[in-house]
């Protein structure tokens, strides 16, 4: 069995967001780049499955759409434990474009399980995994918070309001995963970092394709009024303010 994990290169989640002078883009100077948090959890779970599979899972690949600047993030995925990597050498214009590129790049590879994070922490799209499944004509399950493999049978928990459903998909399939799929993201070991340099990272050129959406302008959020402090000796005042001033209770 082979697993593919799709990863996105995103600004660190603690980044303070600044805009460029024309407000047509985010100012990315000095930004630290990371593996999109949900993708990192997906990779962690894939590695756990491989280790528990007694050799049945033979390979974990990662794939990312991005220019050369994304390579440190891809190398980090290799250092965490992926066996090989593919980088599609283009900027991911939108999810439709990126999913099309990945579908084309892996269509002859016969992955049994494809894992994607449910959202990207930068532009907050939640489209990539579902689009990839549709381009590849594979079943997909989204909001996956637990993933078990027994023999050839996959069982996942899909979160629903107030609980979860256990879903059994036909393989191959795409799982779009969220919090809970792995306890904590794995950190690369020193040995992993050394080995990552030797692992194959294949660069493929993009295919001509359309993007269906594009960013044209950005703006910062509205500034927030100062916090009104309530005397801890008189918390009833808070109830009064919520009732009379904020009018929400």
């Amino acid at each position: 069995m082979k697993i593919l994990v799709c990863i996105s290169n995103v600004p660190d989640t603690t980044t303070k967001i600044k805009l460029n002078g024309e407000k047509t883009a985010i100012d990315l100077a000095g930004v630290q780049w990371i593996i999109n948090p949900w993708d990192e959890l997906a990779l962690t779970r894939a590695l756990e499955l491989k280790e528990a599979s007694a050799g049945k899972i033979t390979k974990i690949s990662v794939i990312s759409v991005g220019s050369q600047g994304a390579e440190p993030t891809i190398r980090k995925a290799l250092a965490i434990g992926a066996d090989d990597a593919i980088r599609i050498n283009t900027e991911p214009k939108d999810a439709y474009f990126a999913a099309f590129q990945v579908a084309e790049a892996v269509k002859t590879e016969a992955y049994d399980i494809i894992l994607c994070g449910i959202e990207s922490s930068d532009y907050n799209g939640s489209a990539f995994g579902g689009m990839l499944a549709e381009f590849m004509d594979l079943p997909s399950v989204s909001s996956v918070s637990s993933f078990e493999l027994t023999g050839d049978v996959v069982k996942v928990n899909r979160e629903i309001p107030g609980g979860y459903e256990v879903v059994e998909p036909q393989l191959p399939f795409v799982a779009v995963v969220q919090k809970g799929i792995a306890k904590e993201p794995r950190i690369p070991s020193m040995r992993g970092i050394m080995m990552a340099r030797q692992k194959p990272l294949k660069v493929v050129e993009a295919i001509m394709a359309d993007a269906l959406t594009g960013f044209v302008a950005f703006e910062p959020p509205q500034p927030k009024a100062a916090c009104k402090m309530v005397d801890p000796a008189n918390v009833a005042e808070l109830v009064d303010l919520l009732h009379k001033e904020a009018k929400i209770i």
Binding site: I118, G130, A133, E134, S140, L212
Partner: peptide
């Protein structure tokens, strides 16, 4: 919702329709 996240991307590809979340 999670249902939109599960289904909308597939509809997008079927119809070649742009899709924006959030």
């Amino acid at each position: 919702s999670n249902i939109a996240k599960a289904v909308a991307p597939r509809v997008s590809v079927k119809l070649k329709a742009g899709l924006v979340f959030a």
